[in-house]
Design a protein around this nucleic acid. Sequence first.
DNA 1: CCGCTTGGGTCAGTATCATTGACGCATCGG
DNA 2: CCGATGCGTCAATGATACTGACCCAAGCGG
Lengths: 185, 185
Amino acid sequence: MPAKISAQSAEVPERSPLPAGRNLLFLREEELRLAQDLLFFGYRDFTAGADEILVELGMGRAHHRVLHFVGRRPGITVGDLLGILAITKQSLGRVLQPMVEDGYVTQTPGRSDRRQRLLTLTEKGAALERRLFERQRETIMRAYREAGPVAVEGFRRVMRGLMGEQATAAFELLEGPAAEPGTSR
Amino acid sequence: MPAKISAQSAEVPERSPLPAGRNLLFLREEELRLAQDLLFFGYRDFTAGADEILVELGMGRAHHRVLHFVGRRPGITVGDLLGILAITKQSLGRVLQPMVEDGYVTQTPGRSDRRQRLLTLTEKGAALERRLFERQRETIMRAYREAGPVAVEGFRRVMRGLMGEQATAAFELLEGPAAEPGTSR
DNA sequence: CCGCTTGGGTCAGTATCATTGACGCATCGG
DNA sequence: CCGATGCGTCAATGATACTGACCCAAGCGG
């Protein structure tokens, strides 16, 4: 329990490489292993805050993801959501169904294709998403602010590069087009 | 919640003068939601490659983490490993025990404290870790190379900033002292 | 109108990773 | 010798994910 990091953990006299010309040194094995560590610790703590809230509500990370992506793309189809999450129908169903029943998400038949069930957050769902977001916001803001704008841009570039084809497609679907199915708040 | 983000940032060598007004744009809500997306997709694909290999061997991500951190710190104690992974003894035991039985990891009693069981990778364990690493290496290398050294440095700064206290301590324990306090090797 | 495809839901069974709480054992240190 | 520590372990539980099969309703081409 005692996190004994006694001294100020912010001194930066790192034995930082890339002193002279920024060569390809950053591709050395040690640097890549460092990336593994950073991703592990960073991602874990990034999700930790929201997880605490979710536990109180008897939900898990999967619920958060649904809230997040439905909030990001109101009126998204189940199929598109499945594509983004890259999980099976069953896995989504187990999470989505209770969320509909509990009034976090609504399903409305598609206009042009009535087989579709377009997903949207209810007021209640949006409120919870908001709450979860605020929690993560603190974490990200702190990291962003300490690192500075240049670092943030670099962070984004690297993270984008980590994505494979499928994720890149999903990502661009998300960030890109304001889409067609209407419903742009 | 610590409201003092200021204390340590005074010590950090800023890379840019940072004129407040327009540079804070990257802290807008949309930018922060983008970060959520990036972390989700990026982390998922970062782990995806290794996961494929692990499945073939009937292992999971937890096994990989053990291989990774034991490989990073040969002779690590069970307690320290638990601290790094931030899981319970049971969770670790369920994974570690078979790995010892299957000859991926060895346990040797500590010299100064014989209660300890220092963990080390066997040849077989190191080989598997190597294989998993090579897989992730490709992913990271591509992302790093495309993004460039400046971006990589930024990526690191942001990821470090995402870590909480506990993770920061664990991280510095990992990256920091190779061997100092006399006791260990 | 008739099939076939597609969007979506569901049943049943299984695996991994994680949890809590309690107990056992050997060793360390005063 | 006694209490604290390092480690292992039992039992029960829960969240997330998977596979494969099967069903319904709606779209769509012929």
